[in-house]
């Protein structure tokens, strides 16, 4: 036994060192994970100063040049507007969203004269840079989607200011 023990000890030590072999956890960082390698212990890194992101030029162009307005763009705009803008601006754009009903300062209605007269680029600019208590939404809404939202805001404005005389079919349907 005395001779076997020294042989056995390293074996036991090796067994004890056996960690989870399932590979459930691997030696890489998870998205947004903790990363002891970096001083701030965050896996998510800021790009170095002066970095140009892949696709940055395309995004810049998309922001500068409005896409053609068609049904698909309006549909996209409706979808984005409903998801991102309605908490404050409300589904009809009157500035009475649920968060406003809970005490957030009310944004202006899209149906006031100033905003009816504003060009589409103005709405894109507000989404990009924020306005008043409205935060910047540049990191949450892609450039093309900003134009889509602007187009949908136009549709909302039309919907709330439509004249029955301009839509003859409508007059027949109204009670």
């Amino acid at each position: 036994m005395r001779r076997v023990l020294p042989l056995l000890l390293p074996l036991l030590a090796a067994l004890a060192a056996c960690e989870d072999q399932s590979m459930r956890v691997q030696n890489r960082y998870e998205v947004y994970g903790k990363a002891p390698l970096f001083p701030d212990h965050a896996e998510a890194r800021r790009p170095p100063e002066g970095t140009v992101a892949v696709g940055a030029l395309a995004r810049e162009t998309a922001l500068r040049e409005p896409p053609p307005v068609d049904a698909a763009l309006l549909e996209r705009g409706r979808q984005r507007y409903d998801a991102i803008c309605t908490p404050c601006h409300g589904y009809t754009g009157h500035g009475d969203g649920m968060v406003v009903q809970r005490g957030f300062p009310a944004p202006p209605s899209y149906h006031e004269d100033r905003l009816r007269a504003a060009p589409a680029a103005y709405f894109v600019d507000v989404i990009t840079r924020g306005y008043g208590v409205m935060y910047v939404y540049a990191n949450r809404v892609e450039p093309r989607d900003r134009w889509a939202i602007a187009a949908y805001i136009r549709a909302l404005q039309l919907s709330q200011g439509a004249r029955v005389a301009e839509a003859p079919d409508l007059a027949e349907k109204l009670p």
């Binding site: 998205v31 998801a83 908490p87």
Partner: peptide, 24 residues
């Protein structure tokens, strides 16, 4: 409040990870 999933989980339609919102 009826806030849409995508208001916070912004990358759910375009990335593997749905995204945990930044503090902003």
């Amino acid at each position: 409040l009826g806030i849409d999933c995508r208001y916070c989980h912004t990358s759910v339609e375009k990335a593997a990870f749905a995204g945990i919102p930044p503090t902003e």
